[in-house]
Computed example of a mutant assay.
Amino acid sequence: MPVTRFPRRAVSASFERPLADGDEYIVELEVEKLGNTSITYAWRVLKAELVDSDGAHTVIHVDGSGEPTPLPDALRAVLDDLVNDTA
Rank of each mutant, 00 (worst) to 15 (best):
M1A: 13
P2Y: 06
V3I: 11
T4N: 15
T4Q: 12
R5T: 09
P7R: 05
P7T: 04
R8T: 04
R8E: 14
R9N: 05
A10R: 15
V11M: 11
V11L: 15
S12N: 11
R17F: 04
P18L: 07
D21V: 15
D21L: 15
D21W: 11
G22V: 00
D23K: 01
D23L: 00
E24Y: 07
Y25F: 04
Y25A: 02
I26G: 02
E28P: 15
L29F: 11
E32D: 15
K33D: 10
G35Y: 04
N36E: 08
T37I: 02
T40R: 15
Y41G: 04
Y41F: 12
A42G: 14
W43F: 11
W43D: 09
R44P: 15
V45A: 02
K47E: 02
E49T: 05
V51C: 06
V51Y: 00
D52K: 10
D52W: 10
D54M: 13
G55A: 09
G55K: 01
A56W: 06
A56L: 12
H57I: 04
H57D: 14
T58E: 03
I60T: 06
H61R: 05
V62Q: 11
D63K: 11
G64Y: 03
G64S: 06
S65K: 06
S65R: 10
G66P: 09
G66F: 04
P68N: 01
P70D: 01
P70G: 03
P70Y: 08
P70S: 03
L71V: 00
L75M: 10
L75E: 08
A77H: 09
A77R: 07
V78R: 06
L79W: 00
D80M: 01
L82F: 06
L82S: 01
V83Q: 05
D85W: 12
A87S: 10
